[in-house]
Simulated scan of single mutants.
Amino acid sequence: MGDRQLARDARRAREFEAFVAGAAGRLLHAAMLLTAEAPDANPRARRLLTLALAHTYARWDRLRGEDPYDCARQYLATRFARTTWHRYGAFGRARPDPRSPLAALTPRERLVLVLRFYEGVAEEQTAALLGLPTERVHALCDRATADVLHPARPAARRAANTGAAPS
């Protein structure tokens, strides 16, 4: 390997390390919001982060002006959506930590809420990223916001989930 290649690899490693130092904390927090895991017990969030960073590193030389944070965030979101769908069916049965403020939301609602409010991604971009109509993203975001701001009481939530009338 030539000196030029070694210098290029060293520069690439330094650039990526600087990116990770600046972005990993925020990306991990976004992943924890998506998985609704506790800060002290978040293996799914850490795995999402690791995969997103590995994907970004693999594309590092081909980013050419693209924002590496945007690349990592897109991978994090799509990977979360895909694994949640395939593993649990229809964005279903993953068990979030009940202490999480987003635990009562479905994974799809969490995904939309995190992208829209925590990450500041525009509604149209969120829709394109998730392959959903903009109106659907808007409805999911409105419902998720209402559920977070005005959570149902436990008895009412249980009755809604079972179809029974609250006592």
Rank of each mutant, 00 (worst) to 15 (best):
A160P: 02
T145I: 10
A139P: 01
T126N: 00
R136H: 10
N161Q: 14
A155R: 06
T162H: 07
R143N: 02
L115M: 12
C141G: 04
A122Y: 02
L115C: 13
A160H: 06
A144K: 06
L113W: 09
A146P: 00
T145W: 09
P154V: 14
H150T: 05
L130E: 04
L149D: 00
T145S: 08
A152C: 09
T162V: 13
A159F: 15
P151N: 09
R157P: 11
A152E: 11
A159L: 13
L140F: 03
L113N: 08
V137S: 03
A144G: 06
R153C: 11
E124K: 07
G131C: 15
A156D: 06
R157F: 09
F117C: 07
N161L: 15
D147L: 01
A144N: 00
A146D: 03
H138P: 00
H150K: 05
E119F: 04
D147S: 05
A139F: 03
L113V: 01
Q125A: 15
V121A: 01
C141Y: 05
P151K: 12
Y118E: 15
A155D: 04
Y118K: 01
R153G: 15
L129G: 02
L132G: 08
F117V: 00
D147A: 06
E135G: 03
T134L: 07
E124Q: 08
T134K: 02
A122W: 06
R136G: 11
F117W: 12
D147K: 00
C141I: 02
V121G: 02
L130C: 11
V114R: 01
A160W: 11
L149V: 06
V121Q: 01
G120K: 11
T162I: 10
P151D: 13
R116P: 05
G163H: 14
L130G: 10
L115Y: 03
A128I: 13
R143C: 04
Q125K: 15
A127H: 02
A128P: 09
R116K: 07
T134S: 04
P154D: 03
A156C: 09
Y118R: 04
H138L: 06
G163F: 14
P154E: 11
E123Y: 07
A127N: 09
L113H: 11
D142G: 08
T134F: 02
D142Q: 11
E123N: 08
A127E: 07
V114L: 02
V121E: 05
A122N: 05
A128F: 14
A159K: 11
C141F: 05
C141D: 02
H150F: 07
V137T: 01
A144Y: 04
R116W: 05
L129S: 07
F117Q: 04
A152R: 14
H138C: 00
L129D: 10
L140A: 01
G163D: 07
A139H: 05
Q125T: 13
P133I: 15
A156N: 00
A152Q: 13
A139C: 06
